[in-house]
Amino acid sequence: MTDLVVETRGLRKVYRDQGRRIVAVDDLDLAVERGTVHGFLGPNGSGKTTTIRMLLGLARPDAGTISVLGNDFPAGIPAALGRVGALLDRGQFSSDLTGRRNLELLARAAGLPTARVDEVLDEVGLVEEGRRGYRGYSLGTRRRLALAGALLKKPALVILDEPSNGLDPAGIRDMRETIPRLAAAGVDVLLSSHILAEVQQVCTSVSILSEGRLLRTGRVRDLIGEKAARTRVGVTDPDRATSVLLAGGFEVTREGAFLVVEGHEHPDAVTRTLAEAGLYPYEISAIRPTLESFFLQLTGHRPAVPADPAERAADEIAQMVAEPSVLQDAPGAAEQDPS
């Protein structure tokens, strides 16, 4: 069995808009290892959603290969999607039904027992809310119901496209706690998100795209580094401390009453240099590198809520993923240009 749950080689997708050729994905090599939560990151228009559409069999690449759960596309699409759940931008649910009844209809369409509905409602913490009408749900509750729908098939792989988009802090916390539970239960997760602090907390590895091309991929801790790149120092004589540190080969800048020191691997080196000169900091703290700062340095963009035009097809995608038979009966749907 392959160690990769998702693998693409030389993936390329070109759209045409009013006579213009738009390269959405360009020669993309993506590898998602088994047993991981993998972050899929990039600025607006970087090709993330287009790639996800291809992974779900809803858009055909112009070049390259795709393998999902060991199934090569296009022949392996039905076998793969029977083991894939997806949470996309919006769910396809009826406002006139309860959350539970919505899931029962999805379960029936997929040939699943009703008992599975109770299980997924419990997994996402919606046992009580499931009895209420969907129309009265908050955005966070709707997202959790969509996640429950994605879990109905007991998937081996879950693809989450901006799962925290539009959620309040409590909803973001709930989603952040749910993702590690999925991983602990043996479900592999591919997560696209613009909230990089959340990604850093829950993801094992990431791939970062820009303009349809892969810029960097790897384990989060390896990409951003675990050592302190900078140290924040509070000392009663900042001017003298600056001179001492500069003489010791450090780089020093002022931030208000504090010094920010660079050019070292461990804060101990800063403390030792100051102590040898008779200076004792009243505050010293490591400024750890973050995924967001790494992302900004790499792409030149701050993360933002995505505006990929492909997301306008999200309702259709959610329905198709929930009902694999629709995918098999409507292969032409994969050819629609989302723009």
Rank of each mutant, 00 (worst) to 15 (best):
T2P: 12
V5E: 10
V5H: 06
V6L: 10
T8M: 04
R9I: 09
R9D: 11
K13R: 14
D17G: 07
G19Y: 13
I22V: 15
V23I: 10
A24E: 08
A24R: 08
L28A: 05
G35M: 14
G35C: 13
V37S: 13
G39Q: 10
L41P: 03
T49E: 10
T49A: 10
T50H: 08
T50I: 07
T51K: 14
M54A: 11
G57E: 10
D62F: 09
L69Y: 11
G70W: 00
P74G: 07
A75F: 05
G76L: 09
A80H: 04
R83N: 12
A86F: 08
L88E: 00
R90E: 02
S95G: 09
G99H: 02
E104V: 08
L105E: 07
L106S: 07
T114C: 05
A115D: 14
R116H: 04
E119L: 12
L121Q: 08
E123L: 04
E129M: 11
R132E: 05
Y137F: 15
T141N: 01
T141G: 03
R142D: 05
R142F: 10
G149Y: 03
L151E: 02
L152M: 10
P155M: 10
A156Q: 15
L160H: 03
S164I: 02
N165A: 08
G166L: 12
G166N: 09
G166W: 10
P180R: 14
R181F: 00
R181G: 11
R181I: 06
A183I: 00
A184C: 03
A184H: 07
G186V: 07
V187P: 03
V189Y: 13
L190Y: 00
L191T: 13
S192K: 04
S193L: 06
I195L: 15
E198H: 12
V199E: 15
Q201A: 15
S205F: 01
I208V: 13
R213C: 04
L215V: 10
L215N: 12
R219N: 09
D222G: 05
I224N: 07
A229V: 15
R230V: 11
V235C: 09
R240A: 14
A241T: 14
T242N: 11
S243E: 15
V244L: 01
A257S: 14
V260K: 01
V261D: 02
H266T: 08
D268N: 03
T271M: 08
R272K: 08
R272M: 06
T273K: 06
L274N: 03
A275C: 03
A275V: 01
A277P: 00
A277T: 02
L279D: 13
E283V: 01
I284N: 00
I287Y: 04
P289S: 00
T290N: 06
F295G: 09
F295E: 07
L296Y: 12
Q297V: 02
G300E: 07
H301K: 12
P306T: 04
A307Y: 12
A310T: 01
E316S: 14
E316M: 12
A318E: 05
V321T: 00
E323C: 01
S325C: 00
E335K: 09
S339R: 15
